[in-house]
Amino acid sequence: MVDKLIHILLLLTMPPLLLGIINKTKAWFAGRNGPPVLQAYYDIIKLMRKGMVISRTTTWVFIAGPIVTLATVLLAGMLMPISRFNAPISFAGDLILFAYLFGLARFFTTAAALDTGSPFEGMGAAREVTFACLSEPALFFTLLVLAKVSGSLTLNNMLHCPAGAFSVAMAAPLVLVSIGLFIVLLAETCRIPVDDPNTHLELTMIHEVMVLDHSGPLFGIILYSASMKLFILGAVLLHIISPFQTKTIWMNWPLFIMEMFGLAIVIGIVESVMARLRMRHIPYLLISALLFCGFGFILLVRYYQ
């Protein structure tokens, strides 16, 4: 029970901190001081106190976008086991609901972007749905590998198992899958090299440009749910790449938090050392993620036979 409460508490409070760490890492690489680590919290609180300015063109869909996104991300966070602790909600087949919840969020985010009638936002929405067509199969290949390794269709067992059943033969497919999943994570959470969360140059953007017309509390919700999505997908990845546990059960919480910080720093490093890819080349990156996951699966099947 306490673990579930900690889970919910972490899910609700920790995500914006990751943004702060990523930005701090980037600033350190650039030789700047950078904004405070808690800047994302200040931003969200400030936005929640502001008024809403919305476009005359919009309808209910525009407001539904952020609201549905927040609800789906919260629910996905409930399905997601953290560290060695079980998820608050778990049932056979929850992995499919987990993946499709993000689909629902995508439907309403992109529809809300089109609702403004702005060409920029249409452009962002088109890119978002197009790239999802490649990252979605990659995500499902990952889930396929995890299901095969663990022999289960429950996220709890699937994600805890790589730790338990870690053998050298499993390592190769899991390494390939985690590379693929890392690329999917960068694409889904709109980081460099797929998208640049800093610039507002509309012609090159995906996520930032879709939410150009959202302001005040709606934009605060968007920022918050985007960071939560990063937290959730990061937690999935951590299960695969770092299946370490300590003997003292409660110590796993601080361990997980440290690991999460580590992941945020890695993302920050990736963002610092790479440039954003040209828009034409992003599908190639995503196809490579798909191939990584696919090859991981083939290796796994060969091992079993």
């Binding site: 869909v61 993946a99 499709y100 439907f107 089109l114 609702d115 999802a132 199969p137 990659a138 290949f141």
Partner: peptide, 24 residues
């Protein structure tokens, strides 16, 4: 994975239709 891709493509298609016909 094909089913996952079908899902993502269907989403793209219906966002397109819903957006182009009813929104904006």
């Amino acid at each position: 994975p094909v089913l996952a891709m079908i899902g993502a493509l269907a989403l793209a298609c219906f966002v397109k239709v819903f957006g182009a016909v009813f929104l904006g």
